[in-house]
Amino acid sequence: RNRCDSGLLDVTFDDHGHGVDLGREQRTFSPAQRAALSLRDGGCMWPGCDRPPSWTETHHIQHWKDDTGQTNLDQGILLCRADHLRLHNEHWRITRDDTGQYWLTPPPGLDPEQKPIPPTSKNALTRWSESGVPHS
C-alpha cells in the first residue's frame, strides 16, 4: 500500500535488460510489461508524436493472431490510438533488427522506395548510448 500511495512502481529486468516475457500464453501485455514498455519507449514511438505512455496502446510487432506473434517486450511497441490505427489502416510495418533497433516502413503508396524510418524513444534516459552520447 505504501508503494501505491508513494507513486513508485518496481520494474524488474533480467541480466540482459529484458522484462518478463509471456510468449503465446497471453495475448495482452501484462501491467509489468506495460510499465517496462512505458519506461523504454517514453510514449508513442511514431516519429513526431508526443503522446505520453498513458495515451498509448501496445502493438505486437508480429501480430499475435495472424503471425503467431509473442507477447514479449521485444515484440511490443507503444503507439497512440491514432498512430496505431494509421499503422494498420495504411499498412505500415514495424520490424526489429538484430541490434534491437525498431524500423517503421511506409507502404509503397506513401513511399515507393519504402525507406525504413527509425522510431526513437521519447525517454531521454534510454536514448543515451554506452559512449555517453545521446541518440537523436
Rank of each mutant, 00 (worst) to 15 (best):
H18P: 08
V20M: 12
V20P: 05
D21A: 15
L22D: 01
G23Q: 13
G23M: 08
G23H: 12
E25T: 13
E25S: 12
Q26W: 12
Q26N: 15
R27W: 13
T28R: 15
F29T: 00
F29P: 02
S30I: 06
P31I: 08
Q33W: 07
Q33K: 06
A35T: 12
A35D: 12
L39G: 15
R40T: 12
D41E: 09
G42R: 04
G43S: 13
G43N: 02
C44E: 03
C44G: 02
M45I: 08
M45F: 12
W46L: 05
G48T: 05
C49M: 04
P52D: 15
P53S: 11
P53R: 08
W55D: 05
E57A: 01
T58A: 15
T58M: 13
H59K: 03
H59I: 06
H60V: 09
H60G: 04
H60F: 04
I61N: 02
Q62H: 12
W64Y: 14
W64E: 08
D66T: 13
D67H: 12
T68Q: 07
Q70I: 01
T71L: 07
N72H: 05
N72A: 14
L73N: 03
L73H: 11
L73W: 04
D74K: 06
D74A: 09
G76R: 02
G76K: 01
I77Q: 01
L78T: 02
L78E: 03
R81N: 13
D83R: 06
H84Q: 02
H84Y: 09
L85C: 08
L85I: 07
L85R: 14
R86Q: 10
R86T: 15
R86A: 15
H88L: 03
H88W: 01
E90T: 10
I94D: 00
I94F: 03
R96E: 14
R96S: 01
D97F: 08
Q101N: 14
Y102M: 06
Y102N: 01
Y102L: 10
Y102K: 10
W103M: 05
W103G: 05
T105K: 01
T105W: 02
P106W: 10
P107Y: 00
P107A: 09
G109V: 07
G109D: 09
D111M: 07
E113V: 06
P116I: 04
I117E: 03
I117H: 00
S121K: 13
N123A: 11
N123S: 11
